[in-house]
Every structure is written in C-alpha cells, then in structure tokens.
Simulated scan of single mutants.
Amino acid sequence: MEPSPTEHVPASDVEQALLEALFTRSPIGLILVDPQLRLVRFNAAAEGTHGTRVQEVLGLRPTQAWPEFSGEKVEQVMGEVLRTGEPAIAFEKRGRPPGDPAREHV
C-alpha cells in the first residue's frame, strides 16, 4: 500500500530537507555554530564573504576564524542568546573581511 499524499512526514526529515535547502540555495551567508560557538557549517555565500574555505575554519570560534572581522561582537551576541534563550534579531558588526580587506564592511 502506498502512503497517501497527506501522510505525515517525520519532523526530522522535514527539518533536514529545510536545512539542506537553506545551505545549498541561499544567496545569503549562513553560519551554523555549536553551543561552544565553534563553526559547524556555513554555506558558499558565507564562504565567499569571509574569504576563507570551509575546511580551514570548521571547529574554530569566529574570533579564531576571522580575527579582523568583528569576531568578538559575534561571540558576544551569540553568547547572550545562549545565556538568555532570547533571539538576537539584528546587530551591527563592522570589520575588514579577509575576502575584501581594503574596505570596511557593515
């Protein structure tokens, strides 16, 4: 018997499919960190923005991976989210990313 089109798909399958779609198709840089703020994954858009290759920075914290690009601010905001459970909707960071060190980015 074939499953009906309305049969429930397990949440983990849906979540995995959404994560894959986001990381493979988004033109916006996406970075995923673990609870210790170590880089776990980022997409091609983020790779280009930061001028680093994924293999070079996985397992590092933002301050280690991108010391010249406001890593301290990123870690401060993410640490606050972890401590309070409250999302950070927006914050401004400034710096000179490795991919474009001649210009300050916001």
Rank of each mutant, 00 (worst) to 15 (best):
M1Y: 08
M1P: 14
E2R: 15
S4A: 11
S4C: 10
P5T: 03
P5F: 07
T6A: 11
E7L: 08
E7N: 11
E7C: 05
H8G: 10
H8Q: 10
P10D: 13
P10V: 06
A11Y: 09
S12G: 08
D13F: 11
V14S: 11
V14L: 09
E15N: 09
Q16F: 06
A17L: 00
A17S: 10
L18K: 04
E20A: 12
E20G: 11
E20C: 08
A21P: 04
A21G: 12
A21I: 06
F23T: 00
T24W: 01
R25I: 02
S26A: 13
I28A: 13
G29C: 08
L30M: 13
L30V: 13
I31S: 07
I31V: 11
L32P: 00
D34I: 01
D34W: 05
D34T: 02
P35H: 08
Q36I: 03
Q36R: 10
L37D: 03
L37V: 08
R38H: 04
R38V: 00
R38P: 01
R41L: 09
R41G: 04
R41D: 07
F42Y: 09
F42A: 01
N43M: 05
A46C: 09
A46R: 06
A46G: 14
A46D: 05
E47S: 12
G48D: 09
G48C: 07
T49Q: 09
H50I: 07
G51A: 14
G51W: 11
T52H: 14
V54G: 08
V54S: 13
Q55C: 15
Q55I: 05
E56H: 13
E56S: 14
V57P: 08
V57L: 08
L58M: 04
G59W: 03
G59I: 01
R61V: 00
P62D: 05
P62F: 02
Q64T: 01
A65R: 00
A65Y: 01
A65M: 05
A65W: 00
W66K: 03
W66R: 04
W66T: 03
P67T: 02
E68S: 15
F69H: 07
F69I: 02
G71V: 02
E72R: 08
E72D: 15
E72T: 05
E72Q: 14
K73P: 14
V74K: 04
E75H: 02
Q76V: 02
Q76C: 06
Q76D: 08
Q76R: 09
Q76I: 03
M78G: 07
M78W: 12
M78Q: 10
G79V: 04
G79N: 10
E80G: 12
E80A: 11
L82F: 03
G85S: 10
E86Q: 12
E86T: 10
E86D: 13
E86I: 09
P87G: 09
A88Q: 10
I89F: 09
I89W: 15
I89V: 11
A90V: 03
F91K: 05
F91W: 14
F91I: 05
E92F: 13
E92H: 15
K93Y: 14
K93S: 06
K93M: 11
G95W: 02
G95L: 04
G95A: 05
R96I: 00
R96V: 01
P97T: 03
P97L: 03
P98F: 12
G99Y: 02
D100L: 11
D100F: 13
P101S: 12
P101G: 11
A102D: 14
E104D: 08
E104T: 12
E104C: 09
H105N: 09
V106E: 10
V106W: 15
